[in-house]
């Protein structure tokens, strides 16, 4: 029997975490215990989350495959579906079609130093890979995290930050755009802070995700630091419906973000026509 690619697995929201004024995190389990047990995915892959009656939207699975008690999705309120999801609570039912898309090349990244640069909700996909690497710590070299948001109250995963800051095997830098009372970390735009930290491009891979304007200047900063196009990885976002390369809206030329992405190296992006 061929799988129905459009029929979601029913899932239950186990926990809802209010991250910021417009971001909520949902921890969900699939209702079918077999499906939950057999669920496997790779860091970077996404899912279509449904609120039946409203519709589906695409989110990265931002819990790592090494921690399978639940699947986690962080949702920034923007449109119809995200607005509806934000009204849901623990115990509510949603649909999940996952995993979809490609993943971070975590195998190729083994033995290398890793630099994560996340801005705002762009931290979500990085979180998956970061936790996956921390859970397989011996496989990777030095790990640096630069995570920025507009202000401390816009920073998702704030409850995890003390742990990240405290770890010896993770070099964490937090930054906000403008001074804020009580803030103990850096102040400044992510690209500038990145230049200040100045991670070495030697045997390194940079992984970045965030709003378009941040990405634009972060790429320039990475270039300045000597990172080559092949050493820079990012994830793209597009309006998606089917999630399986059929419905025809997420393509950039011949590449379908839902199938060939969402993860691309900068070198791959340069091969695509200019339609981000």
């Amino acid at each position: 029997m061929t799988k129905n690619i459009y029929l979601p697995e029913m899932a239950t929201i186990q926990e809802v975490i209010r991250e910021t004024h417009n971001i909520m995190t949902f921890r969900v389990t699939l209702n079918n215990p077999e499906a939950m047990k057999n669920f496997s995915f790779k860091p970077g892959q996404v899912g279509q989350v449904s609120s039946f009656g409203t519709g589906e939207a695409t989110f990265v699975i931002n819990s790592p495959p090494t921690r399978m008690d639940y699947l986690q999705f962080s949702v920034m309120r923007a449109g119809e579906v995200t607005g509806k999801l934000h009204t849901l609570k623990a115990g509510d039912q949603i649909g999940v079609r996952a995993p979809l898309g490609n993943s971070f090349p975590y195998e190729d990244m083994k033995g290398k130093d890793i630099v994560f640069i996340g801005g705002g909700i762009g931290m979500a996909p990085l979180r998956t890979l970061l936790l996956f690497m921390l859970d397989n710590r011996a496989d990777y070299g030095k790990i640096t995290l630069l995570y920025g948001a507009r202000s401390p109250v816009d920073m998702a995963y704030s409850y995890e930050l003390p742990d990240w800051l405290g770890r010896d095997d993770l070099d964490t830098h937090l930054t906000i755009d403008a001074p804020y009372e009580g803030w103990q970390h850096r102040v400044g735009l992510i690209p500038n802070v990145l230049l200040d930290i100045a991670p070495s491009p030697e045997n390194s891979v940079a992984v970045t995700c965030g709003p378009p304007i941040m990405i634009k200047f972060t790429l320039q900063a990475l270039e300045k630091l000597g990172f080559k196009d092949e050493q820079i990885i990012t994830t793209l976002e597009k309006r998606m419906k089917c999630g399986v390369g059929i419905c025809g809206r997420c393509n950039i030329g011949t590449s379908y973000v839902c199938m060939d992405g969402p993860v691309f190296t900068r070198a791959q992006l340069r091969q695509l026509p200019n339609e981000l």
């Binding site: 039946f52 009656g53 519709g55 419906k241 089917c242 025809g248």
Partner: peptide, 23 residues
């Protein structure tokens, strides 16, 4: 062959539709 997927509900019942969409 492009399409859209939308949900329609009336009361407690609903359907997920696939309909022609237009680039």
């Amino acid at each position: 062959y492009c399409f859209n997927i939308t949900d329609e509900t009336i009361g407690m019942k609903g359907k997920r539709l696939r309909s022609w969409d237009n680039c």
